[in-house]
Computed example of a mutant assay.
Amino acid sequence: MAPIPTPPAEPHDNPDAYVGLEQGRAERLAREKGWSTVRSLPPGAIITMEYRSGRLNFEVKDGRVARSWKG
């Protein structure tokens, strides 16, 4: 039987800390802090709602992070 995969770890990080940062800077910082996936989306983007451990989402408006959340 194959082993059960281990989901990526979530860093101990506050998503609210990225709000207001320039998109590129926020993405680099999130990866440096250990997020395995960083996803930047335009406001109102249609996305799936499954929770993925290790993923940080950014809603980007005018080149800056307007909202940030895990999963």
Results as ranks from 00 to 15, higher is better:
48 T>R: 13
36 S>Q: 10
52 R>N: 10
11 P>F: 01
17 A>T: 06
23 Q>P: 01
21 L>E: 10
18 Y>S: 02
65 V>F: 00
4 I>L: 11
22 E>W: 02
62 D>V: 07
26 A>K: 05
29 L>T: 10
37 T>V: 14
40 S>T: 13
68 S>R: 02
67 R>P: 00
47 I>R: 12
5 P>T: 08
54 G>E: 08
9 A>N: 02
22 E>Q: 15
19 V>E: 09
22 E>S: 01
42 P>W: 14
4 I>H: 03
3 P>Q: 10
9 A>G: 06
38 V>L: 11
33 K>R: 15
30 A>V: 06
35 W>E: 03
51 Y>W: 05
38 V>R: 06
31 R>D: 01
43 P>N: 15
45 A>I: 13
42 P>D: 15
2 A>Y: 07
11 P>K: 04
55 R>M: 07
57 N>E: 09
14 N>A: 09
63 G>D: 12
59 E>T: 15
7 P>E: 12
11 P>L: 05
61 K>F: 05
46 I>F: 08
55 R>S: 04
32 E>S: 10
59 E>L: 06
40 S>G: 09
51 Y>E: 07
8 P>E: 06
40 S>E: 09
64 R>L: 12
71 G>P: 01
63 G>H: 11
66 A>S: 13
31 R>K: 15
41 L>W: 08
52 R>G: 00
65 V>T: 04
64 R>V: 14
